[in-house]
Amino acid sequence: MPRITARGLLFYGLFYVLFGVFYAGTIAYAIQDYKAGTLPDDLRRVLLIDYPLKAVWTLPVWWLLFRGPLRRVSWPWRLLHHLWLCPLWVAVWMGSYYAAAGWLGVGTIQGSGKAWDVYIPVLFYGFQFGLLHATGFIQQLQQRGHLEQLLREQAHHSEVAALKAQINPHFLFNTLNSISASVPPELERTRELIAKLAHTFRFALVASRHEMLPLGEELAFLRDYLALEQARFGARLQVEFVVGDALLGLLVPPMLVQPLVENAVRHGIAPSVAGGCLTVTAVPYGPGGVRITVADTGVGTTVAPAALLGSAAGLGLRNTHARLLALGSPGLEISANVPHGLRVSCVLPVRQPEARPAAPVPVPTPQAVPA
């Protein structure tokens, strides 16, 4: 849609002045055989009354088409609205123009010549709004091209960053297995932590290649992730999962709950001297969703929970919120926890797992019965 800029206002001001001067000169030339020296009077009438009124009545039509309810209408239907907007615009302009001219004592076209006061405004209306629509269309193309260029640059930067940071996953897993094998038997706890670390890396790799994964695998990944955090925080971090077994097989978008858990540990539990409890809850939500809630009893937040998505500390939450919106979810819901802490919940779209074909039942081979 056309934007209001100082350059645009100057352009349309010059457009009105030039069109008015041309119109006044045409009238003066057409009636010079009847009355000489009318150009100054025609210029004053056109530039001080006629075209200023056209500009005034253009503003509501422009707002309706480019800022009001009709801006969301598709281009063909928006153009069809001119079939009633143009006659209305001409009628309103004519009424105000003749009223202003009569009040100021300025002469107007009389008799059959009034047809020009319909013909010329219709042409002017079509010309100016054709120009406005063309300007809006060009601006949309420029914005779309600029957005596509930004997306290409971001994709290129992401690809370069991924190439720079790429580590052969097999090398990583083999190294972790070698480290685990070198741990003496008396350090079995260390061996378990290394195994959990390898599992979190392996799940992150698998999640990057799939759009949907079973909720049970997502929760197993979260359990390993939180087990590693518990090794760091000790008794300060208590973890609880409240999930029904019937939900574990549902397919959900992966890696959406982990940022919520990480945020709760980092900003809720870690700053608290006494630590706290982190609870992950999953319950069915409607026919095609599951509500995940991550609640902690940490320090909470100093800003209003609803405003947390706009704060500097909410970068991970904002990214998760944007990803949920892109999936058609309502996004994150943030509220204070009781007695203290924070509660973050979201609705994940789910899909039923594909039914695996049942194994064929072996049919016994008929055997000959002795006579």
Rank of each mutant, 00 (worst) to 15 (best):
T5M: 01
G8K: 00
L10I: 06
G13V: 11
V17T: 11
G20K: 04
V21T: 04
F22L: 14
Y23Q: 07
A24I: 02
G25Y: 11
I27V: 12
A28V: 09
Y29H: 13
I31R: 06
Q32T: 08
D33L: 00
D33M: 01
D33V: 03
A36T: 15
G37S: 08
G37H: 08
T38S: 11
L39T: 04
L39V: 06
P40E: 06
D41S: 09
V46R: 02
L47A: 04
D50E: 08
L53E: 09
V56D: 11
T58Y: 00
P60I: 08
P60S: 07
P60K: 08
L64K: 01
G68K: 10
P69Q: 11
P69N: 10
V73N: 01
W75M: 12
W75L: 13
W77V: 02
R78P: 00
R78T: 00
H81T: 09
H82R: 04
W84E: 00
L88F: 14
V92Y: 04
W93I: 05
M94T: 07
G95I: 05
S96V: 12
G102W: 10
L104V: 10
G105V: 04
T108R: 06
T108K: 02
S112Q: 13
D117H: 10
I120R: 06
V122D: 04
L123C: 04
G126W: 14
Q128K: 02
Q128R: 00
L131W: 00
G136T: 12
G136I: 09
Q139F: 08
Q140W: 08
Q140H: 08
L141E: 08
H146M: 04
E153Y: 07
A155V: 02
E159N: 05
V160I: 12
N168V: 13
F173D: 00
N174E: 05
N177E: 10
S178E: 14
I179E: 02
A181Y: 01
A181S: 05
S182Q: 06
E188W: 09
R189W: 12
E192K: 15
I194L: 15
A198V: 02
H199R: 15
T200L: 02
T200W: 00
H210A: 08
H210C: 05
E211L: 10
E211D: 15
M212W: 13
L213I: 14
L213V: 15
L215F: 14
G216L: 14
E218Y: 01
L219Y: 03
L226R: 03
E229I: 07
Q230L: 08
G234F: 03
E240C: 03
G244H: 04
A246Q: 14
L247G: 12
M255H: 06
L256Y: 08
P259A: 03
L260W: 03
N263R: 03
I269Q: 03
P271F: 07
P271W: 11
S272Y: 07
A274E: 12
G276M: 01
C277M: 06
T279F: 00
V280C: 01
V283L: 13
G286Q: 11
P287M: 15
G288W: 05
G289C: 09
V299I: 12
T301G: 11
T302I: 06
S311M: 10
G314V: 01
L315Y: 13
N319D: 11
N319S: 04
A322D: 14
I334L: 15
V338G: 02
P339K: 03
L348Q: 07
L348R: 09
P349N: 05
R351C: 05
E354G: 13
P357I: 13
P364K: 09
P366A: 15
P366V: 15
V369F: 03
